[in-house]
Design a protein around this nucleic acid. Structure first.
Lengths: 342, 342
DNA sequence: GTTAGCACTCTAATGGTTTGAGTGCTAACA
DNA sequence: TGTTAGCACTCAAACCATTAGAGTGCTAAC
């Protein structure tokens, strides 16, 4: 299914590249001219018709040029894009200075990145997000208080007193402990979300009211200092791209940046492609609904074992993927250098 | 100059109120109908002509209705607006809960405020902003190091070692000390801005290079933990007001909110009207240039002697001043209660 | 398989016309 | 002298028809 034939690939590539540059639908004549294949526009037209049928390109309206579909972009990113291996370039505009405070550093990073790419950027402070839950233990302190002990991988222990109205029977306590451990063990902190919690509540059955409270408090305990420190920059860059800058869309997007809550999903989801640690979401692929008209490129950076952060770049679908990924790779290297050194 | 005559005042009031509601230029016929003065549109027309000549209203173009000018708004706010003394209303939508962390509280406050007013809001964390500089002393430690001692009102002392390339003569040191003290004493930390600094540099004359460095470091010293904690919310509310939501303006405004730097000027400037502590900036009156098409209403809240924070609401000039000021008054009371109690 | 040619489609731009809200001015009126 | 009715005038916005141009799909010929 990924065999299009060399000629079609070449044409698709030309279409996408041209569209990335101009932002205008591109017609057969243009392609005929900019490629070196010596084909007339009519021939290109036939090929384009095929490509459209295959779903790689679409027409905004009959009798206009074609623009890439999400599938087209995906193919481009996966197969066509020139993955230039130019060596790590110096960051030109601004140097990222070493600074005592992590916060300062991150703020600077997003700013530089937004400046270099002209897209909207975000970065999450490094956290133990990937740290897994090893063990949960609830035990009755007295009739109205339960002690919850949570052990994370790496033997980080958190505990908290939970007040309850009615005492729990030993039997129920045991059931609850089993329920919690079988369901939560091995999960990362981020995987324990609302959906999970409601599922647990259901399974808990009769004692839902008490148990719900316990569960909430457990979740709360774990999330405790889940401060969700996310820094953003260049949100207003989206105004540079007409396809995103009508009031409606711009407002939604910028709200997402202002609230930051939604961006947390990006951090959660991003695992990173094994090799480069860079992931590309095109349009609907994005984990954030409000960004379905955008593309999102994320990367993870490491501070130490399991302590990771996420960098994200959000722009129009016709973003300069090459440049963006380049920038991210560079940044990863730079960050590694700075963070490891200090 | 503030005597317009009762009739003109009534008409001006009617014009402004109608414009606040509709956002459309208002014509003579409308006024004739909505007022209870039994005047024909023709008469109103004459009066409006006068009001325009006096500068309280303007025509977007010949043969359209009138809209208030900045002067008109100002007059409205100062003299016409019904300052309803309704008692402190309950906050309906959300309760502001007491919370251990100041940060949480402030974030909640701006959010509630933005929600209630449908404008953009900001709040600065309480700080010793109004603290004044009492005394500055530079003295040579050795050939390459100068010790700067800064004393703030309340006898808070800060000092820092400043490295210099060439030693300063005693004479120059003296000159510098005088210069600093005569210029800086009595100023609040916030009043020492870049403009001030360049002015000082100029006056410093020949030794500009050394002196510049010294000055910078002094400024830096003083600003030291000037973390400028500002929280914002509802920036995207500006899209609700067509007069602010074209790409250009929206982008500038939202950038200001994103950067937050500019908002600091608001905090700096706001002294608060003696009685209510509420200040209104209409259009060009705003201390922030990018907000010259907006109105800005600020209030200060107190945590203790000299420790103050600023709340700001930014919206279109035709904002609902009454409602906004009401909300701010309420909030002040609530904040006082919460902060003092804890 | 490729291409030239042509009819067709659709958007965007252009420009003239109409509509309606609103003004300013004048002359009449109380 | 202040108020009003009436009327000519102005201007933005909406509307409509037309045109220009880019681009397509299809057919027939090479």
């Amino acid at each position: 299914m990924d065999e299009l034939g060399e000629r079609k690939e070449k044409i698709l590539n030309a279409i996408i590249q041209n569209y990335l540059e101009t932002g205008e639908p591109v017609g057969s004549r243009t392609i005929s001219k900019i490629t070196d294949m010596n084909l007339s526009s009519a021939t290109i037209r036939n090929e384009m018709s095929d490509l459209e049928e295959l779903g790689y390109i679409v027409q905004p309206h009959t009798s206009s040029g074609r623009i890439p579909s999400d599938k087209g972009y995906r193919f481009y990113v996966d197969h066509l894009m020139a993955t230039k291996e130019r060596e790590v370039t110096e960051i030109k505009d601004m140097m990222i200075e070493k600074t005592e405070k992590m916060e300062q550093l991150l703020k600077q990073v997003v700013k530089v990145l937004a400046n270099n790419t002209q897209y909207a950027t975000m970065i999450s402070a490094p956290s133990v997000q990937r740290n897994r839950l090893k063990f949960v233990q609830l035990s009755a302190v007295d009739e109205h208080q339960i002690l919850s002990v949570v052990v994370m991988e790496g033997n980080i222990v958190k505990n908290k007193i939970i007040p309850v109205e009615e005492p729990l029977s030993n039997e129920n306590m045991l059931k609850l402990n089993i329920l919690l451990n079988t369901n939560l063990n091995g999960l990362t902190v981020e995987q324990i979300n609302l959906g999970m919690i409601t599922k647990l509540k259901e399974q808990a059955g009769i004692h839902e009211d008490i148990i719900a409270q316990v569960l909430n408090t457990v979740a709360e305990t774990i999330h405790e200092d889940d401060d969700l420190e996310i820094y953003t920059s260049g949100a207003t860059n989206i105004f540079k791209y007409p396809e995103l800058s009508d009031s409606q869309k711009a407002s939604e997007l910028i709200s997402a940046f202002e609230e930051k809550q939604a961006l947390a999903d990006l951090v959660t989801v991003t695992q990173g492609d094994g090799e480069t640690g860079i992931q590309v979401y095109i349009g609907d692929e994005s984990p954030i609904q409000t960004m379905k008209d955008c593309s999102v490129v994320t990367a993870t950076y490491e501070l130490g074992e399991g302590v990771k952060g996420t960098i994200g770049i959000i722009g129009p679908k016709r973003m300069d993927y090459e440049n963006v990924m380049d920038n991210l790779k560079n940044l990863k290297v730079q960050l590694d250098k700075i963070l490891k050194k200090e």
